[in-house]
Design a protein around this nucleic acid. Structure first.
Lengths: 193, 193
DNA sequence: CTGATTTCTTAACAAATGTTATCAGGCACT
DNA sequence: AGTGCCTGATAACATTTGTTAAGAAATCAG
């Protein structure tokens, strides 16, 4: 059912997706990383941030022996455990590759060096923080406002590509339900047509 | 059962809770506001931000005719519909007083004026944005990680004052459950002792 | 290609939570 | 004191979602 397409075309963007990063590109280390590899472990303090050239990541934590995935990241996105990276506290979650991925890695002190040398990038990061805030706010609201079925339908409508690229049990835990229940929802939607 | 204590002592702090705001205090307008008054309406674009000298607010939205409360604010806190205030988009929720309150109000353009004239306050606000991000992240995680009963017990342990000050049906919707279910949880906890 | 592993579906049953309705106490207002 | 409103508790019943287990389908490793 699910189509795995690591070979689909993509843009090879600069870290940050913007030419303002050009002067600082030497701070980034390009790495090719296999699938299912941890980039950050729950409980560790994040000392690196990542930019995804190719591939996808998921963010998850352990709840009583089970993995709960709550975010996905794809090509062109910058990723870090924001609260850990910026406040030097243990990360609340793991960051892991889903597919084989090409990641640009930057160390925390280099990142701070850039921030203190580029007003433009400082603003970009500030904007990024605001966007993350809004993202989490919406994510939270969608969980208390909408049913799992409504969230699934929204995902289907707004980000159909994710469904074709990410294993369904990750999607289920992202929606806050079990794989069994997601399967039921999909089934009932099929019958309704 | 619930004790309403609008007369309890409090600190009369400066807006922002910090002397760096002192030079800009004339931008704030002190207002005494009755209970159950809307400061911002769902769908409106936020053109003001608030600092609470005294009283408390709740943040809620309408879901199919029912009010869902998902945040409380108390003395000493700065409040706005961040995403609306900073991005000029319609607010996703209402901000309303619970008790009679004393609020310092600042207009958006004055706020921006301050930001462009004080590096220290710009940093404070940036820090505030990060804290809000982390707050929403944690709130979201607590909803997918913990049961309503666990969330109630955490609230009981970490913020018992809220429970004595805010009507129980607001608490219930904050926990993501119905007042009936919260009552059941409280009952089962009592029996357990 | 083939066997092993992972992923998805389905069913039966269990647990958690919602819905509706009723009642009782507290509180504000007269 | 009496009335009405708001709040919280409780019960009976309905619905949603989880759990466990089994098998089918897809994918992966050699």
């Amino acid at each position: 059912m699910r189509k795995h397409k690591p070979e689909e075309p993509y843009e090879n963007r600069l870290p940050g997706g913007n030419p303002e990063w050009e002067p600082f590109s030497h701070f980034f280390n390009r790495e090719e990383i296999p699938a299912k590899t941890l980039l950050l472990r729950e409980g560790e303090i994040a000392r690196k941030a990542f930019y995804i050239e190719k591939g996808c990541l998921r963010v998850w934590f352990n709840r009583e022996g089970r993995e709960i995935t709550f975010q996905f990241f794809f090509e062109g996105q910058g990723v870090s455990s924001v609260e850990s990276f910026r406040t030097n506290t243990p990360s609340l979650f793991n960051i892991e590759t889903i597919e084989p991925s090409v990641i640009h890695v930057i160390a925390k002190n280099d990142f701070e060096h850039i921030l203190s040398h580029s007003e433009a990038i400082r603003r970009t990061i500030e904007q990024h923080t605001l966007e993350r805030l809004i993202y989490y706010q919406r994510l939270f609201l969608s969980h208390i406002k909408n049913s799992p079925q409504e969230r699934y339908e929204a995902l289907l409508k707004d980000h159909p590509a994710i469904l074709h690229r990410v294993p369904q049990h990750y999607i289920a835990s992202y929606l806050g339900i079990t794989p069994v229940h997601l399967s039921r929802i999909r089934n009932s939607l099929l019958k309704r047509k």
